[in-house]
Amino acid sequence: MKTVFQKPRSLSDTPTHYCPGCTHGIVHRLVAEAIDELGIEGRTIGIAPVGCSVSAYNYFNNDMVQAPHGRAPAVATGIKRSVKDSVVFTYQGDGDLAAIGTAETVHAATRGENITVIFINNAIYGMTGGQMAPTTLEGQVTQTTPYGRDASIAGNPIRVSEMLATLDGPGYIERVAVDSPAHVRAAKKAIKKAFETQIKGKGFSLIEVISTCPTNWGLSPGDAMVWLRENMIPHYPLGVFVDWEKEENDG
């Protein structure tokens, strides 16, 4: 019998606790595939955030450290600077990365900290039950914006990739989505490129993954994909914002 599809080696057998239709599972798999293909599991240390993906430490087979809320880039910095040949990634949601951990994110980026950040943007706090995130869209209804996000009261959503692209430290920043097979394939390529950026010592890399949260959006998984496409991508356009390779080629 020929194996045509299997679980990546660096993904563990532990069943995940994610809701049906949640896109964390897809992104975990893409990260694991990249680790497998680059043959780096043995020297990879992942940082789990606080949020839905807090238990990510159970799902990857490489060494894992669980960080306080928002502090993953600082924890990653401590590891990366102490274990020279390590490959270090953080896996963070929008609340973790773009609200409570903004300082850690911006400063790791501007230092050009040679780590990879996987940033899940689904425009909502999942773990705590659907509150407004820094990336919640204007007009979007959440538990804490029951009348829709009003920018004059609750401020505007943050475009993290564009903001970080203004800095000199990042080597690679791309925004991808996981709403279609084509987008998933592009996301995989981006994640692998981010790890390669780190392995080659080209500085901070971040992949912003536009994701869904069917449970807290109150939509079926299928409808959530449509909502993502119609509402999130127009506000968070996909694309490459920083690419060290392109910069080197353009010389």
């Binding site: 450290v65 960080a67 600082a74 924890v75 990653a76 401590g78 590891i79 102490s82 300082a103």
Partner: peptide, 13 residues
């Protein structure tokens, strides 16, 4: 805040 978390990471390693 970041400094102590860098210590956390370094110590974890």
């Amino acid at each position: 805040v970041s400094a102590i978390n860098m210590v956390l990471g370094s110590a974890a390693s």
